[in-house]
Simulated scan of single mutants.
Amino acid sequence: MASHKPTAVLIIHGGYFLPAAWDAFWDKLRQAGFIVKCPRLPSCGDKRPPTATMNDDIIAVREAVQELIDTNNSILVLAHSYGGMVASEAISPDLYANNGKGAVGLILLSAWLVQPGDTLTDVISKYGFQCKVDLSDNGDGTFFAKNAPESFYNDIESIEAKDLAAKNVTHNLFAGSGKISGAPWKDLPTTYIHCAQDMAIMLPLQQSMVQDAVNMGGKLITKTIDSGCHESAMNLERSMMVASNAE
């Protein structure tokens, strides 16, 4: 997948979640020999009323990438859901690999893939809101998923789903309302992994965004896993190991 095999994985989590949601997958990556970072995006679980914007999320990711660069790591960036938008803006050419240090590849896991010059609203206007998450406004600028067990955790047992849903956090939905300007998927080897059961960004929408990216010059390869939002990380393991070990 890249000219330099990655020594580190930088995870950019999605909205309504915190880094702890990736703990099990994080452990598997560490056992495989990777250094792992998953910075908390400030717009997730923000104070109420919220103050963090996507720019704050971008800063958090860039700081984490720079720390990995400073310790001589080549980095595979894994972005999920809202994290795809953050990745587009945060992973700019100054963070690409130089002498083996920096970003060498990108994995978009059922992630928002918004074209430069467009907003998330533009994508939704073009393809419709292909989402089964029942989002509700707290009235203070934060949003939460009313049906998290059924939408985020539709691929696991209902009791566990309810327990995990209780750990979801609010998200400042308007954090991602601005125009996207970056497109690291045009420059870096990129794999888009479709999650067939994802209810947050449904499969046809994932496919449409990828096709738009290809039409814009992106050389993405795709894989599909039979997974929803929660189990996507665990079902990703095999595909990610193949990608990260490729020359």
Rank of each mutant, 00 (worst) to 15 (best):
A2Y: 03
K5S: 06
I12C: 01
L18T: 11
A20Y: 01
A24F: 11
W26Q: 15
W26S: 15
D27P: 13
F34G: 10
C38Q: 06
P39E: 08
L41N: 02
C44Q: 05
D46R: 01
R48G: 01
P50Q: 07
P50W: 11
T51Q: 11
N55Q: 09
N55M: 02
D57S: 00
V65F: 07
V65Q: 12
V65K: 10
E67G: 10
E67R: 10
E67D: 11
L68Y: 05
T71F: 03
N73I: 00
L76M: 04
H80S: 02
S81L: 03
M85N: 05
A87M: 14
S88E: 10
A90G: 08
A90W: 07
I91Y: 11
Y96N: 06
A97E: 08
N99K: 09
G100D: 01
G102T: 00
G102S: 04
G102D: 04
A103R: 02
I107M: 09
S110A: 12
A111P: 04
W112L: 15
W112F: 15
D118C: 10
T119F: 01
T121Q: 14
D122L: 02
V123I: 13
S125G: 00
G128M: 06
D134W: 07
N138M: 15
G139Q: 08
G139Y: 10
F144R: 14
N147M: 11
P149H: 10
E150R: 09
E150D: 15
S151Q: 10
Y153W: 11
Y153C: 06
Y153Q: 04
Y153H: 11
D155P: 10
S158R: 14
S158N: 12
A161K: 01
A165V: 14
A165I: 12
K167V: 08
N168L: 15
V169K: 07
T170G: 12
G176Y: 10
G178R: 13
A183I: 14
A183G: 13
P184H: 14
T190A: 09
Y192R: 07
I193Q: 05
H194A: 07
A196F: 02
M199Q: 13
L203P: 04
L205A: 13
S208F: 15
V210T: 08
A213K: 06
M216E: 08
M216T: 11
G217F: 02
L220W: 04
K223S: 08
K223A: 07
T224D: 05
I225P: 03
I225S: 01
D226G: 06
S227K: 00
N235S: 08
L236S: 02
E237F: 15
M240Q: 02
E247T: 07
